[in-house]
């Protein structure tokens, strides 16, 4: 007699995913709220008075003018009231007004965000793809010259600071060899449209992408190699060998998918760091993204812009993680059932 095939959780999965999504969205909202409040308080704890900075640059240092500026931007109100007002405004989509640029912060960020997303997404894909390929290759050729070369290269880029790589890349590929543009996202004054503009941007993208991505490539290479070697020692790989499956197919069909799971987890966490790394890259390559916007706002004590950038970055990181978790449930069928 055979019992019917029915596992304990079968049939429940779509609802479980819904539960999961619901819980995660609530958590995500709280995370973003926490980031906003924390940043707001931290910024006001830091020394430096934006009104004084602005007045000083305007050449007028008298108390009356500064007080007027404070009143204009609501800086004379108690801190808790400023926070409540700010949160209320954020909920309605109003991120405030830049002290310096005299434009709404939301507008400023939306103008710069695509450039940053383009750079980070390119760097992310570049590092993940190249890292996994090199890691697989190193594991497959374990103990050979190819393995040693790949791992030495990975170690070098893992150990070298990002800004140094960036400066050297500009020096070698732009100044000495003149192969690639050293800064900016488009050729100034060229006014390309359509495909020509696309190609121009892609051309400008190469150096910052590779620079930003190399550290992460090194990381993924090492991680993939270690993970591959671990999976290769598991029982089911022996089963596959006992079935007469050739080695290349074992790597492709059995090892790879299992081995990239931890790499995938790691990458989803690292995606947030990539946005942070972009600040440096954007500054070196004069890339018109929010990294540079943040850097400038910091020097100018432009609180609304700073807070806006923090909020948007946090939202991007939280979204990326949420998407990664959902994807993970697709890549690994066991997750969905475990809930």
């Amino acid at each position: 007699m055979r019992p019917p095939f029915r596992s304990a959780t079968a049939g429940n999965e779509p609802l479980k995913t819904l539960d999961f999504l619901f819980q995660r969205l609530i958590k995500a909202a709280f995370v973003v709220l926490g980031v906003v409040i924390l940043n707001f308080l931290l910024i006001h704890l830091a020394p430096g008075d934006p009104a004084a900075v602005m007045a000083g640059e305007a050449g007028a240092g008298d108390e009356k003018f500064i007080a007027q500026l404070r009143a204009q931007f609501g800086l004379d109100q108690p801190l808790w009231w400023q926070l409540v007002t700010y949160l209320g405004n954020v909920l309605t989509g109003d991120l405030g007004f830049s002290y310096r640029n005299n434009v709404p912060v939301a507008e400023l960020i939306m103008e710069r965000l695509p450039a940053t997303l383009l750079l980070t997404a390119s760097a992310f894909l570049f590092s993940l793809l190249l890292g996994v390929v090199l890691g697989v290759l190193a594991a497959y050729k374990r103990g050979t010259l190819a393995d040693s070369l790949i791992m030495t290269g990975a170690l070098i880029f893992y150990a070298t600071p990002l800004f140094w790589v960036a400066l050297m890349a500009v020096l070698v590929f732009s100044i000495h060899l003149d192969w690639l543009p050293p800064f900016d996202m488009e050729s100034i004054g060229a006014d390309y449209t359509g495909w020509a503009r696309f190609a121009d941007i892609a051309y400008h993208l190469i150096l910052p992408t590779v620079t930003l991505g190399l550290f992460f490539t090194a990381l993924y290479t090492r991680l993939t190699r270690a993970s591959m070697l671990e999976v290769m020692s598991l029982d089911f790989v022996k089963t596959a060998r006992a079935k007469g499956v050739p080695k290349a197919r074992i790597i492709r069909r059995h090892v790879l998918r299992n081995a990239v799971l931890p790499v995938f987890t790691f990458a989803s966490i690292q995606a947030g760091q990539l946005v942070g790394g972009a600040v440096l890259t954007e500054t070196v390559f004069a890339w018109p993204g929010i990294g540079r916007l943040m850097f400038d706002a910091l020097l100018q004590r432009d609180y609304p812009v700073l807070l806006g950038v923090f909020l948007v970055t946090a939202a991007v990181v939280v979204t990326v993680n949420l998407v990664a978790d959902l994807l993970y449930r697709i890549v690994d069928p066991r997750i969905e059932a475990a809930g």
Binding site: L234, D235, F236, K238, T239, A240, A242, K243, R253, H254, R257, N258, V331, D332, P333, R334
Partner: peptide, 16 residues
Amino acid sequence: VAMIFQEPLSALNPLM
């Protein structure tokens, strides 16, 4: 020649 192993839990590829 075919072979079966001790641990049925780990002897199958979990993602296939």
